[in-house]
C-alpha cells in the first residue's frame, strides 16, 4: 500500500491502518498473556510504530521536492516539517534514556498493574490517533467542519487517556504500594520507574493537547483553510506521543513477570 493523495482513498487508508494497529495490539496482548515471547513483543511494537510513522506521520514528506522559491509557503512548510522531525529525534533520546533506565533497573519484570486499564488507555490513545489522521485529511481537502469534529474527538480521547493514566492508574498504583515503594528497599525501584515513565509521557500528552486546542480554536476561525501546515504539525506531534506509548505499553505492562 503506497501513500495516496485523494480524500476518499486517504480516509480509507486511515481505516486500514487503524485496523492493522488494533489487530497488532490484540496480538501483543495475546502474546503477553500466553507464551510471553519478549522478542515477539518487541517486533510487534516496531511494526506498529513503523505503520504510524509512515502512514499517520507521513515521514516520506520529508523527501518531497517543493515547487517555488525559498520564500514560498510550500518551501517554508518543508523547513518547518524538517525542524519538527529534528525535534522528535531529539525527544526520542529522552524516551530512549527512560527505556534504558527501565531495562537496567527492572530487567524482565514489570509493575503489577491492572491489565484491563492498560489495554484500555492504550486503545483510547490509538483511537485518538485514528481520528487525528481523519481530521488532518479533512482539512487538507477543504472540509473544515469534518476537521473540527475529528480534532475535537481526538482531544476528548486524549484527555481521556490523560485522566486514565494520571487520575485512575496512578491512584490504583498508589494503592498497590508503588508510591510507598519509593522508600522501600524490598520492593526495588519499580514505583520510581513506573511514575517517571508514565509521568514524562503524560507531560507530552498534555503539551499535545494544548497544541490540539490551539489548532482547533484557530481552525474554527478558518485560519487553516488554505495553509494547513500547523494542523499537520499538531497531528505529527500527536502521533509521536502515540508511538512513544506503543513502546512504553509493552515495557510497563507486558514484558516479563509482574512484580510489585
Amino acid at each position: 500500500m503506497t501513500h495516496t493523495e485523494d480524500k476518499k482513498s486517504m480516509l480509507s487508508q486511515g481505516i486500514y491502518i487503524f485496523v492493522y494497529l488494533a489487530l497488532l495490539t490484540g496480538l501483543e496482548f495475546f502474546v503477553a498473556v500466553t507464551f510471553k515471547s519478549v522478542a515477539l513483543l518487541i517486533l510487534v511494537a516496531f511494526v506498529k510504530a513503523a505503520l504510524v510513522v509512515y502512514y499517520y506521520m507521513h515521514i516520506y514528506k520529508l523527501n518531497a521536492e517543493h515547487e517555488g522559491g525559498h520564500d514560498s509557503y510550500e518551501y517554508k512548510s518543508g523547513t518547518n516539517r524538517l525542524g519538527l522531525w529534528l525535534f522528535l529525534v531529539s525527544d526520542t533520546f529522552v524516551f530512549g534514556g527512560l527505556m534504558v533506565m527501565r531495562i537496567n533497573l527492572l530487567g524482565l519484570t514489570h509493575p503489577d498493574l491492572s491489565q484491563f486499564l492498560g489495554l484500555g488507555v492504550t486503545s483510547v490513545l490509538l483511537i485518538s490517533s485514528f481520528f487525528m489522521n481523519r481530521g488532518e485529511t479533512m482539512i487538507k481537502n477543504g472540509d473544515r467542519k469534518g476537521f473540527l469534529n475529528n480534532t475535537l474527538i481526538t482531544f476528548i480521547l486524549g484527555l481521556g487517556f490523560l485522566i486514565g493514566v494520571v487520575f485512575v492508574e496512578w491512584r490504583l498504583a498508589a494503592h498497590e504500594g508503588l508510591i510507598a515503594s519509593f522508600g522501600d528497599p524490598a520492593k526495588g525501584p519499580v514505583g520510581a520507574v513506573f511514575y517517571m515513565m508514565t509521568g514524562m509521557h503524560a507531560f507530552h500528552v498534555l503539551t499535545g493537547l494544548i497544541f490540539l486546542a490551539i489548532v482547533w480554536n484557530n481552525g474554527r476561525k478558518g485560519l487553516y483553510d488554505e495553509k494547513h501546515y500547523p494542523v499537520e504539525a499538531a497531528a505529527v506531534y500527536w502521533h509521536f506521543v502515540d508511538v512513544v506509548w506503543i513502546f512504553f505499553y509493552p515495557a510497563l505492562y507486558l514484558i516479563g513477570a509482574a512484580i510489585i
Partner: peptide
Amino acid sequence: MGFFDPAK
C-alpha cells in the same frame, strides 16, 4: 524515587 539509590 530511588533511581540511583542502591538502598532502594
